[in-house]
């Protein structure tokens, strides 16, 4: 029997989080009804509008996870988080601090500082980051309630480029690890869940599929399959042949 995903004081049954950078109504509906997502991220900058606002399309029972997209340093992240709290009442915030318009890489150094500021201000900070163990440890010490390492540069659908480093985070970090950005296909989502990730976030892979509905469902099933495999503990894969007569048999 699986446990719930716990982030700060909140609990979730679903381990799929919908990113909404590329959102349209069909994507949100598919995520909720086909993928059974319980959390949808929302860029506050994108919700700062009166026409076609993402908030108008999200049902009340879905948890909005505002992100600080647009912040280039810790102070800006804090200001955006506060606006998010005013706008939607949310206290769970995904920290995104990005100083690069080309690759959109998160700045781990500023993110650590942002985690500290947000925690002091009463938020439940979730840190989007480049998978670096030292940085992740510092984020947890600063109060991060989840670590969200990227699998590949955001929006690229390139898959698990940082697989080995994410595995290290899974092994060493005690708050939930949510793999965010870059996953291109359900099999990759299954893979990271099998590896022990606590949840998966996706946007582009579903948003750019020809059949959004079907792809949303495929992600849901893949995440569940991966999770089940993780809980049931995979049979050990041996890197070398197992000798039929044990080398240490002579000791008997």
């Amino acid at each position: 029997m699986d446990t719930k995903l716990k982030i700060g004081k909140y609990e979730f049954n679903s381990r799929f989080i919908l990113g909404s950078g590329k959102f349209n109504i069909e994507l949100i509906k598919s995520a909720i009804f086909e993928a059974e997502a319980e959390i949808i991220t929302m860029a506050i900058r994108r919700a700062n509008t009166s026409k076609d606002n993402i908030l108008d399309f999200v049902p009340d029972n879905i948890k909005i996870l505002p992100n600080t997209s647009g912040a280039r340093n810790a102070q800006e992240a804090l200001r955006i988080a506060r606006l998010a709290r005013e706008l939607s009442g949310a206290d769970m915030i995904k920290i995104e601090v990005i100083k690069d318009s080309k690759y959109l890489f998160p700045d781990n150094h500023e993110t650590i500082k942002a985690v500290e500021l947000l925690k002091q201000d009463g938020f439940i900070p979730m840190a989007y980051m480049y998978p670096d163990l030292s940085a992740a440890r510092d984020m947890v010490s600063a109060g991060a309630d989840a670590i969200m390492p990227l699998a590949a540069p955001i929006g690229t659908n390139k898959g698990l480029l940082t697989k080995d480093f994410i595995k290290i985070l899974i092994d060493e970090i005690d708050v939930p690890i949510i793999v965010d950005a870059g996953l291109g296909r359900p099999s990759e989502a299954a893979y990271v869940m099998e590896m022990g990730a606590d949840a998966v976030m996706a946007n582009t892979a579903i948003a750019t599929a020809s059949d959004i509905k079907l792809m949303a469902k495929a992600f849901k099933l893949a995440i569940e399959a991966g999770r089940m495999a993780y809980i049931s503990k995979l049979g050990k894969i041996s890197e070398y042949a197992v000798a039929s007569s044990p080398l240490t048999g002579f000791l008997d």
Binding site: F23, N24, A43, I44, R45, R46, N48, T49, S50, K51, D52, G70, A71, E76, R79, I80, L83
Partner: peptide, 11 residues
């Protein structure tokens, strides 16, 4: 297409 009137926040 998705018309967007604003995707920005002054910080």
């Amino acid at each position: 297409m998705q018309p967007v009137m604003n995707d920005y926040i002054y910080v």
